[in-house]
Simulated assay, not measured.
Amino acid sequence: MTPPPIRTLVVDDDYRVAAVHAAYVEKVDGFTVVGQAHTAAAALDAVTELDPDLVLMDVFLPDGDGLTVVRSLMDRARHPDVVVITAARDMSTVRTAMQLGAVHYLVKPFGFAALSERLSAYRRLHLRIAGLPGEADQTAVDELFGILRSQPASARRPAKGHSAPTLELVRNAVRTAPDAVSASDVAESIGISRATAQRYLSYLESYGVVRLQLRYGSTGRPEHRYSPA
């Protein structure tokens, strides 16, 4: 028997962004969007009315803080799981989201692939929990926590024309750099051409493994720089 879809509420202050994220969710197997909300008050009302399984929660809302909404939800006897989706990158916000029990934290902007990977991991967790008996041994507990922590499968399987060792070298070059790096920086640090570095960086960025930042100078085109997602 096919399990019912995971009923998802999308919360974002920007109507257009909310619509994009809702469209992303609908494209992921096993999910359906039951509503959208654009304020903290509307989010609380929507959870009460719609009883979603999962909420994609923005932090910056016009009438309050999305994490305050999450805190209110977690105080309820029955509450949805939460994926925080925000432009906030400060560690205080990240730490608070973790302490409140958010199952994932996605930094805007991101593409469909990044959200799809995390939703798919959440669905695997959802199904695995449903299939376990009333008690879990340590092996089962480790498995459950590992489902959400695992690296996205698509980033572990390079597309045609991409070498797995080179992909890992590029990823590590970004991860260990003290600041955001350019394709030229990566190329020099691991000994590949700038064009090759750019191709691998673009691939990793499309899957949400690295984050693209545009650095504008006084003239000319903006420089593409990358940091860990």
Rank of each mutant, 00 (worst) to 15 (best):
P4K: 12
I6E: 00
R7W: 01
D13N: 08
R16A: 15
V17Q: 04
V17C: 10
H21I: 13
H21V: 11
Y24S: 00
K27Y: 04
G30N: 01
A40E: 01
P52Y: 04
D53P: 11
V59D: 00
F60D: 14
F60C: 13
L61M: 05
D65T: 12
G66P: 02
S72L: 12
L73Y: 11
D81H: 13
A88N: 07
M91D: 11
T93Q: 00
V94G: 02
A97C: 05
A97N: 09
M98F: 15
Q99S: 14
G101Q: 10
A102L: 12
V103F: 01
Y105V: 04
V107S: 07
K108F: 06
F110C: 01
F112G: 01
A113Q: 11
E117R: 09
A130M: 09
P133H: 05
E135N: 11
A136W: 06
Q138I: 12
E143C: 09
F145Y: 14
Q151W: 13
R156I: 05
A159R: 15
S163C: 08
A164N: 10
T166P: 01
L167G: 08
V170L: 04
N172P: 04
A173Q: 02
R175I: 05
T176M: 06
D179T: 14
V181E: 10
E188A: 15
I192Y: 06
R194K: 14
A197F: 02
Q198R: 13
R199D: 03
R199K: 03
L201H: 03
S202T: 14
Y207F: 15
L212C: 07
R215P: 01
R215I: 13
Y216F: 14
G220A: 01
Y226N: 09
P228F: 09
